[in-house]
Write a protein that binds this DNA or RNA. Structure first.
Length: 575
DNA sequence: GCCGTTTTCGGCCCGACTGTTTTCAGTCG
């Protein structure tokens, strides 16, 4: 069994948690966290890098951590971790999930009370045993209990697509408050991360106290977690945590920059500041003599370090600061670049709208090409089309095309099922009749790596297949994607010229940003589709575009930004 | 534990807020 980059990253985060509780110097734990984060952003399997003796090329991975990766990949175990788990009870890391409980308090509860897991902590708090510990009191004990309750109510991370509409409503509310001059979404929401923990908002105001007061007394607020001059934090009734940060307008640029993050991006930027004898915070940039420079605009903050403005989607410490320094930031794709949607469903399979309704909605959004790609017969749950029904559908598509004339080009396609053995659901002569063929994995996703990779490769090598739909098959937050050998998948994509899809449904966002970036670097064509099952889902395109932007992808790599003639020519040539 | 156009050793980002404290530790982002 081969450990994935994600699994390795989880192990190093776990080591960091245990080392922190143990009381190891902070920089050691930070080193493990940095290595974990790098592994998550890495498109090449660590196992491949190990084989080539290139593990230390991973940022934040040196001698010690590379040896641990090798040991894990070779034996599946890690002596260092096993020894650590003898010293610190492994279940103790549960305590770190509780708000306001960090490594020091977890260690305190363990050493003084023998607490080793969440249930024991809750019991100790209920028995009033926490209040008498050093540095603790009745209020702290109550906060721990409330934190445990909040943990039970709240899912860990939510999907961007579920959070964003509500966040935009709250932003509108904030902008309408008296005394608020400017306000924006910040944090992972502004960076368009696929999943969101807490919600961060920033505002510019000269009357922060009033703004904070209004914020914490909204009817949706369940409880106030903290409230000061510059910052307030609340838990909403639905379990969501929201932070609001306020500075006067002349400091808004540094505030927005700071709260947007990511944390790692900010650390890099502050290192850069230090080298120039400056100190960056959410308040200002300070010179070494203490003189403050104030920035109302975020662009000016970056300019102060000689950098162009960096789009928030890139701020993950994945090379964006060196790229900005060299003036080599990518020209990112925009939603307005999108001309076609090549993956949609109608009532012919499991969609809720007719071909005509979907086409009209697509025209309304300015699409020039729309592919109707209902499921093939094999996917029983989605009422896939038999060959006979597929041919009937062509007639209706032709009729709708006639009615709509030149407003849009309709294509007939299929989202065809890849069987467990890699064969496809329709015979080749039927596939040849279609304008576009998207092959997707929906079933038997748990096959082991060699099997499912060979299965996908077989489908990719069918010359009628134009696109691989949502390649990993993941459904967030619960279903992991297939355990594919991405080296082979990407190599096959390059060899066959097939396009890989970024599915824009917020629960998919698949390809993810890590592999989308690698694919684009390899010159593999990408396509961003909504996979819409209803007219309003055609608007979800922006989520797919956000993945491409986070993957440093420009419009040229994405075939549905191309002029219609070029796109149709590409499809025709593939046949 | 990592890393180097200031360094192979000595650094490693910065501030708000809370609760427990009489000046600070812990947590968080």
């Amino acid at each position: 069994m081969i450990l994935t980059n994600q699994e390795l990253a989880d192990i190093f985060d776990r080591i960091a948690d245990l080392l922190e509780i143990k009381g190891e110097v902070i920089y050691k734990t930070l080193a493990y966290r940095k290595a974990a984060e790098s592994l998550r952003g890495l498109a090449e399997d660590a196992a491949v890098l190990q084989g080539q003796n290139r593990l230390t090329e991973i940022p934040g991975v040196g001698k010690a951590i590379s040896e641990k990766i090798s040991e894990l990949l070779t034996t599946g175990k890690l002596g260092f971790l096993e020894k650590l788990e003898q010293e610190v009870p492994p279940t103790l890391t549960e305590l770190l999930q509780v708000p306001d409980v960090g490594p020091r308090k977890a260690a305190l509860f363990w050493k003084q009370l023998g607490v080793t897991n969440l249930a024991e902590l809750e019991a100790a708090a209920r028995d009033g045993k926490l209040r008498s510990l050093p540095g603790m009191g009745e209020k702290s004990e109550k906060r721990v209990l409330e934190g445990i309750e909040a943990l039970k109510r709240r899912p860990k991370r939510r999907l961007l697509g579920n959070v964003r509409p509500a966040a935009l409503r709250m932003l509108d509310w904030l902008r309408a408050q008296p005394g608020v001059e400017k306000a924006d979404l910040a944090g992972s929401l502004r960076r368009w991360r696929a999943t969101i923990g807490d919600l961060d908002l920033v505002a510019a105001s000269n009357s922060p106290t009033e703004v904070m007061q209004a914020f914490t007394s909204q009817p949706e607020v369940l409880r106030v977690l903290g409230q000061g001059e510059n910052k307030a934090s609340v838990e909403l009734k639905d379990g969501m945590n929201v932070q609001l940060w306020v500075q006067p307008p002349e400091r808004y640029g540094t505030l927005l920059q700071f709260v947007t993050g990511s944390k790692d991006h900010n650390v890099r930027l502050r290192e850069l500041a230090q080298k120039k004898g400056l100190s960056l915070s959410e308040q200002s940039i300070k010179e070494s003599n203490g003189t403050e420079r104030l920035y109302a605009e975020e662009t000016a903050v970056y300019a102060a370090f000689g950098l162009p403005w960096i789009p928030p989607e890139l701020r993950e410490d994945r090379g964006e600061i060196p790229a900005a320094l060299a003036n080599k930031l990518p020209n990112l794709i925009e939603v307005s670049d999108i001309r076609a949607d090549l993956h949609t469903h109608t009532t012919w399979s499991d969609g809720t709208a007719s071909i005509q309704q979907m086409a009209e909605a697509a025209i309304h959004l300015g699409r020039k090409v729309l592919a109707i790609t209902d499921h093939s017969g094999g996917l029983g749950v989605a009422q896939g089309l038999s060959i006979e029904r597929l041919r009937q559908q062509r007639l209706e598509i032709n009729q709708v095309q006639e009615r709509l004339g030149e407003q849009i080009v309709l294509l007939q396609g299929s989202e065809i099922e890849i069987h467990a053995d890699g064969s496809l659901d329709y015979p080749d002569d039927v596939l040849a009749e279609l304008d576009i063929v998207i092959a997707s994995l929906h079933t038997s996703l748990r096959q082991e790596r060699a099997v499912i990779t060979a299965r996908l490769l077989r489908a990719m090598r069918n010359p009628h297949v134009d696109v691989i739909g949502h390649p990993s098959g993941r459904l967030m937050p619960n279903r992991e994607g297939a355990d594919l050998d991405w080296e082979q998948v990407l190599a096959a994509a390059r060899e066959t010229g097939i396009a890989l899809e970024i599915d824009a449904l917020p629960m998919r966002l698949d390809l993810d940003e890590v592999y989308a970036r690698r694919a684009a670097e390899m010159g593999i064509p990408l396509v961003i589709d909504t996979d819409a099952h209803a007219p309003d889902q055609l608007e979800l395109m922006e989520y797919g575009v956000s993945v491409a932007r986070r993957a440093w992808v420009g419009p040229e790599s994405v075939i549905n930004t191309w002029e219609s003639e070029r796109l149709l020519g590409w499809l025709k040539k593939r046949q």
